[in-house]
Design a protein around this nucleic acid. Structure first.
Lengths: 161, 161
DNA sequence: TATTGTTATACTCTATAACTATA
DNA sequence: TATAGTTATAGAGTATAACAATA
């Protein structure tokens, strides 16, 4: 197989990355969310009421950063910040009714989108496609985080804009 | 085909998005580049010496933003900013030898990465995979920018971290 | 002493608006 | 009058470090 063939496959994969990322960001902005805030919201939906410290660990971001994200989400009505009942140092972040409704809506939209994306694809083709994705994920897992070969992808991704 | 099957396909696709984006950012940081600066560098490699105004249009970002990105790239030795020979209002941004070398390296690393990613895949499987990607790109193109259904993808993407 | 969250500070990316120099 | 790039200002996301209150 030629380098061009494989390069083309990677290019297409990056093109998909670009359009999905752009559209998601666009949709979130309509609702009044940024990527970072939406990530926090999503984590909150999975975990239930959570301390800021734990959110920092779950999302992989500094505690100081969580303070800012929660400030924003409180200000726009997606979450509340309340004193932790058992630990007076800690704060408990909780989805509001609005925050919960938004997460539910986004999840539903994602389901609809998956259907739009793959409904026209024969079952066998979809299976092959998923196999390809799994292969890619497997290779990346093998290469590991310390591989110096997972390299300059973003430039291509950005130029695809 | 079930919703779960298609949802799983989208989930995997988003997982790939996450790991590729993370690894690219990691690699760029090693070289001393951010996503935004790498994007400018890449565009410069494609276009040759370019005015800041044109870069703003190409990248789709405000002229003021270009000023900052070029400042950073000049300071770290990736590009030069020189007076335009014909238009004394304009500046001409040009890759340095170092900047050119970095772009070449990243492009080569990307080629190596594509090989690592797809070499283990039978040709027929790779073709099916690419077909799947093309299908996805086609559907998205059909839906168009005004579709309200390309929705809350990023939350899932982030939770996949 | 260790932990939670904050204030203080700083850097990057992003934007708009006003201004300067030039076309 | 229009265009290229800057200064001025603002806001989001990110980080570290120092500090308060509490465990």
């Amino acid at each position: 197989m030629t380098d061009a063939t494989m390069g083309g496959a990677l290019d297409r994969l990056l093109a998909v990355v670009v359009v999905l990322g752009r559209d998601a960001q666009h949709r979130l902005a309509e609702i009044g969310l940024s990527d970072a805030r939406a990530g926090l919201l999503w984590e909150l939906a999975r975990s239930g009421p959570t301390t800021q410290r734990r959110l920092a660990d779950l999302i992989g971001v500094s505690p100081r950063n969580i303070t800012g994200l929660v400030d924003g989400l409180v200000g726009t009505g997606f979450v509340t910040r309340e004193p932790h009942p058992d630990d007076r140092r800690a704060a408990l972040v909780t989805l509001t009714a609005h925050g919960t409704a938004v997460v539910v809506t986004l999840a539903e939209e994602q389901r609809v989108f998956a259907r739009q994306l793959f409904d026209g694809l024969p079952a066998a083709s979809l299976r092959s496609f998923v196999d390809g994705l799994d292969h890619v994920l497997g290779v990346i897992a093998e290469l590991g985080a310390d591989s110096p070969h997972l390299a300059g992808l973003l430039p291509a991704r950005l130029s695809a804009t």
